[in-house]
Amino acid sequence: MDKRYFVYLMVLLLLLIGAIIGAANIGPVHLSWSSLFNFDPEDIDHRIWMNIRLPRILLAVIIGVALSISGTVMQGLFRNPLADPGLLGISSGAGFAVAVALVIPMALPHFLTLWLPVIAAFVGSLLVTILIFQLSNLTKGNLSSLLLIGIAINALGGAAVGILSWVSNDQQLRQLSLWGMGSLGQTEWPLIFITLILIIPTVIIIQFYAQRLNLLQLGEEDAHYLGLNVHKTQKQLLILSALLVGTAVSVSGIIGFLGLVIPNAMRLIFGNNHKILLPASALSGALLLLVADTLARIMVQPAEMPVGLLTSLLGGPWFFWLILKEQWRRRA
């Protein structure tokens, strides 16, 4: 690894650690670090640490990693800077599946009830990912066609969730509303453990695919001549990416544009080598979502803004810039 890139990664890591320390101490109640190690169950500060602040920080970091890595993988697979789980409709597919799980009653054992949103989101995101990949092959990866496909899937997913919201009760409607805007406020330790169990191994496995992603940038034919089993690699990466998106959506709701902004920003600094791009995207995605969630907690105290609104405010202008950049490149 280039020494300069190693320094950049260390800077990102230090910024993330600083953001974690800041997020842990920012809020309506100022906490000291000593309260974290005060194991008195009656101590209010310690309970806030363990039941509110710490799980929320961990969730922001891990969801930021998952969404940014999935966006990096999608852009590598489609060889397209505008490929993003949200824009292509993958998040909508996962969202519709979770909405079905929330609204339609199912008689399941307790342990399956805990896992049901994750399973539903994974299945929904995987089905939409496969559909998009097949349509991408038919359209030969045309940028306009991919965006139109994503718009259509998002419209269908939004309409389906709207119908489910219409037939839901008040409690289900509130869950769907908060979840549709993206929020980390409903964090609990069981969800943290499920998220860690699914996302951490998936991210590690994807890192081992970095060289194969580099080969795919040369085109399917050239990658095949260099000894890569292209279709098998594509399917495996699709499943891994769908697992990341599905898990993230099931826990935090739809947080848009993170998988679009982060990989493109990191490419400007680190280039297209996925061996470096993947960890850089993971660190910066975790940093961005943690900072956004911290701002969402304190901007409108004592209320709280859904973090998905903040990421959309950031991602919208970036998306316009990417489209204009692509048009300028074509004209040139």
Rank of each mutant, 00 (worst) to 15 (best):
V29K: 15
A107E: 14
A296N: 07
I62E: 07
R297M: 07
M50Q: 14
F320Y: 13
T129L: 03
I149H: 06
R329S: 14
L290N: 13
T113P: 01
Q211G: 06
L164D: 11
L196E: 03
S34R: 12
I52C: 00
L87D: 08
S312N: 05
I104K: 14
S136I: 08
I153D: 12
P109S: 10
L288M: 05
L278E: 03
L287H: 05
W189E: 04
G256A: 10
L215E: 10
H231N: 14
L87W: 10
E188L: 12
I323Y: 09
H231Y: 10
S68Y: 00
A282R: 06
A303H: 11
M181C: 09
N169T: 00
L138C: 06
L176H: 09
Y209N: 05
I163H: 10
D293K: 05
F193Y: 08
E42L: 07
L191C: 02
I276W: 04
L215Q: 14
V261K: 08
V98N: 13
S177G: 04
L156S: 08
Q234A: 03
W328P: 04
K325R: 15
N273P: 02
G89M: 00
G76F: 02
R79P: 03
T311E: 04
S250T: 01
S165F: 13
I63V: 15
L108G: 12
E220V: 03
T202M: 04
L143I: 12
I200M: 10
I52G: 00
F37K: 01
Q172I: 11
Q175I: 00
Q134H: 05
T139A: 15
G86D: 06
T139R: 10
L116C: 10
G185Q: 12
F319D: 12
F270H: 04
G162Y: 06
T202V: 06
I254C: 10
M305I: 15
I298K: 07
L14R: 02
W189A: 01
N264V: 04
Q207K: 15
G285E: 14
Q134M: 06
G227N: 10
G124M: 04
L14M: 08
I199F: 12
E188P: 08
A210I: 00
G141R: 04
I20F: 11
G64T: 02
V103F: 01
L288D: 00
L36E: 00
I69D: 13
L164K: 07
K325H: 05
L108S: 08
L218N: 09
I239Q: 13
L88I: 13
G308D: 03
G18C: 14
G86K: 07
R79S: 12
F270M: 04
L295H: 11
A66V: 05
N25I: 04
E326M: 07
L283Y: 09
A23Y: 09
L198V: 11
G316T: 14
I69R: 13
A159K: 03
K275H: 14
F96G: 02
A332C: 09
G227Y: 07
R174C: 05
I21K: 02
L322T: 01
L213W: 02
G182L: 05
I262F: 08
A286G: 10
F37N: 07
D40E: 11
G157R: 06
K232M: 12
Q301I: 03
R4S: 11
N169Q: 00
P306I: 00
I90C: 03
N80C: 02
W115P: 01
D293Q: 08
T233M: 12
V300M: 10
L173S: 13
V291R: 06
T139I: 07
L16M: 14
Y8Q: 11
R4Y: 09
I298A: 09
P28C: 01
Q186Y: 12
